[in-house]
Design a protein around this nucleic acid. Structure first.
Lengths: 154, 154
DNA sequence: CTCTTAATGATAAAGATTATCATTATCTAA
DNA sequence: TTAGATAATGATAATCTTTATCATTAAGAG
């Protein structure tokens, strides 16, 4: 059954993420906790582009004892260890998305309806690295956001 | 004298910006005020990448009667009419820079010392437009930030 | 000059993130 | 396995930035 494959894949992704997280914590002399496991699971199961508040509310259903500050702190840690990306647009709430396998992408953001689409262009990526090198700059990561009107709103 | 030419150019830039601002206000049925002129002047004379607070403090010296909210509101207006660009990095304060002639550029941001360098690559710009079009998206503007280590920190 | 109403300035409110701190729980090492 | 050092948690306060409120002032059209 397709659905079983999807579930298995999801579990594999989360297991791998848990490993990455645990290694990161270990390396920094930090401790793994039940809360951290719950938060990571919920974050990877949740919709893309979630806010801390939405994540907190999702977690609250099954784990009402986990506090908002804890969720907030740990989303920050997930960003630090490369398992989450931060998306900040205008003055709206900061959103976060899970990152599997360091897979990177850019965003098209509609100025009218606010929808974002994920895109990627290898050629642009390479030119960005060249541009950085030309300036004696060692690139680590980048953020490209193109604002405009989406298919529906244009 | 070189210095006179520089001063003359600066005055020309500000005059042009004042024109653009006044036209924008007129078109929206808004009013020009003494405060707006002072804020625009100070913004274009100030260092690049200034925060609202820094701009407010700079203005306060000569114009202690101008309030923080007024400065804040008007920096927003300058962004709206295309005379300012907003730069938001991590959880640091939002910074603004004057924009002459709609000249656009991207940023290299050092993860260690926080310095930013301005860069531009026409080829990347064109590819971005193509990427947007391929997704049936009408691009208006974009933001590209490359994070890494600068010449001094690498 | 008058009148309409936008803008201002002072302050409060809102919204998001970070800090505080007593308590709990993890994890190392004996 | 247990004890002990200390990191993490949870509740809340504090902070920081931006936005809203509202009485007063002043821009600008007629």
């Amino acid at each position: 059954m397709i659905i079983n494959i999807i579930i298995k894949t999801a579990i594999m992704v989360i297991n791998k993420a848990q490993d990455i997280f645990r290694n990161y914590l270990r390396g920094k002399g930090l401790r793994n906790t039940r809360q951290r496991e719950v938060i990571l699971d919920a974050f990877f199961f949740a919709d893309k582009h979630i806010t801390v508040e939405e994540l907190f509310n999702a977690i609250k259903v099954k784990h009402p004892e986990i506090g908002f500050a804890t969720v907030h702190r740990n989303v920050g840690l997930l960003c630090e260890c490369g398992l989450a990306d931060e998306i900040k647009i205008g003055n709206k709430k900061t959103r976060y998305e899970p990152k599997y396998e360091q897979r990177h992408h850019d965003h098209l953001i509609c100025l009218k309806c606010g929808e974002f689409t994920e895109v990627k262009d290898e050629k642009i990526e390479r030119l960005q690295d060249k541009l950085a090198e030309a300036n004696n700059f060692a690139p680590v990561r980048h953020k490209l956001e193109i604002y405009g009107l989406c298919k529906k709103c244009r």
